[in-house]
Amino acid sequence: MRDDTHDGTGWHADIDDLRAYARGELRAPRLWSVDTHLVTCAICRGTLAEVSDPQTLDAGWERLDAELDAPRPGFVEGLLLRIGVADHTARLLLATPVLRASWLGAVLLVLAMTVASVYTSDSPVLFLALAPLLPLTGVALSYGPALDPTHELAVVAPLHGFRLLMTRTIAVLVASLGLNGLATLALPGYGLRALAWLVPALALTATGLALTARLGPVLAPALVSGGWVALLMVTEATTHGMLAAFTGPAQGVAAAVAVIAACVLHRMRDRFDASPVPSPFTHFARRSTS
């Protein structure tokens, strides 16, 4: 600080401190002192204007405008940021289409109707058949240009395709499995049988993701869902009861399928990073143009 008692202020900010302040290089505690002094001292504000680079000032105003115009994070996004999630990851996570109120409300309605049907028919078959498909459907709707309205934002985000897929898959699984779990609590009379949907749900989701690398985000989950429905129909026709698909041996097979599909998905992870996820209609488009 330079002494300048003749003007009544007692002192003024040092010229080197003002230059560092203008460049954004002044560190505390000098930064706090100069910042407070500039509020009341017109002479130092004039000196600051003289020593400041116009381009630096323009850049500072641009940063200030960008900061003021930036959207304020909501409660959930702020919570994710506080626990260490990167801002772009939190934004893409919350932009997942199936985490919106409309989707979650639709899932709750479907589950409520399914639980009601269980009490009407006195059998959890419909609930066990439908619950594994909800996570698979949610994952399918959360990734890919055909179904995700924020796909352009996801493409330019500093995330690899596989990491983005896994981030949104985990978010969808947490939401879907949580809602399914709440519905299961409404069926206390069936004990552990009411949880028989969990392992098939993981198997269907992992299989759908593994096939997405080759078939695309539309065809892959459609084929997996169709295969699940066909399996249940065959089981019912051959064993006279769909519940055979949720017995102990069937749960073991579903667990093995989930593990194998997860391993295949991990081996094919580079397909999500090297290029966009292929469309299921790409092959037919190439044939029609050739």
Rank of each mutant, 00 (worst) to 15 (best):
L179D: 00
Q55I: 12
P97R: 03
H6G: 06
P132M: 01
L192M: 14
T40P: 06
V115I: 12
A250W: 08
L111S: 01
A230S: 08
G189C: 11
G8F: 06
L219G: 12
A95W: 14
T120D: 11
G252D: 05
W228T: 07
T207A: 14
T205C: 00
S275G: 05
R2I: 13
T184C: 00
E62M: 09
L133N: 06
L92N: 11
L232C: 09
A262W: 13
V229A: 14
G74W: 01
I260C: 10
D14L: 04
S176L: 04
T282C: 03
A274Y: 07
A210V: 12
E50H: 13
T96G: 00
T235C: 07
W197D: 00
P278H: 07
A186F: 08
A49Y: 04
V174H: 01
A254H: 13
L109S: 04
G161R: 06
L185T: 06
L198G: 02
R287V: 03
D58H: 14
A131S: 02
L79A: 15
I83R: 13
E25P: 05
L128T: 10
D87E: 15
A222I: 06
P97M: 10
A274R: 14
G84F: 01
G226V: 03
R287A: 04
A175Y: 06
D65R: 14
V85P: 12
L179W: 01
S102Y: 09
A42H: 15
L94K: 05
R267W: 13
L159K: 02
G181D: 02
P149N: 03
S290M: 03
A194K: 01
V155F: 01
T207F: 05
D69G: 07
D65G: 09
R267F: 14
L48R: 02
H6D: 08
L265V: 05
L31W: 15
A20D: 12
L173A: 14
T114Q: 02
A183S: 06
L211Y: 09
L223A: 13
T120L: 12
V155G: 01
L192S: 15
V253G: 04
L232V: 04
L195M: 09
L231Q: 01
P132Y: 00
L164K: 08
H266V: 15
L93G: 13
P71N: 04
L93F: 12
S121C: 05
G144H: 04
T235N: 10
S142N: 02
R30W: 14
P249W: 03
S52L: 02
A86N: 09
S117M: 11
S33K: 14
A49T: 12
V174L: 13
P71M: 05
G10F: 08
A220N: 08
R100Y: 10
L126S: 05
L136Q: 07
G178T: 00
G189K: 11
L209D: 09
T238G: 10
A258Y: 14
G226W: 01
T235K: 05
T9E: 12
P278S: 11
G241Y: 03
G248D: 10
A237L: 07
R27K: 15
P71C: 05
A210R: 13
L133P: 06
A255S: 11
L147S: 03
A95L: 15
V76D: 07
L111W: 01
L93H: 12
P124D: 07
G105S: 03
D14Y: 03
W197H: 00
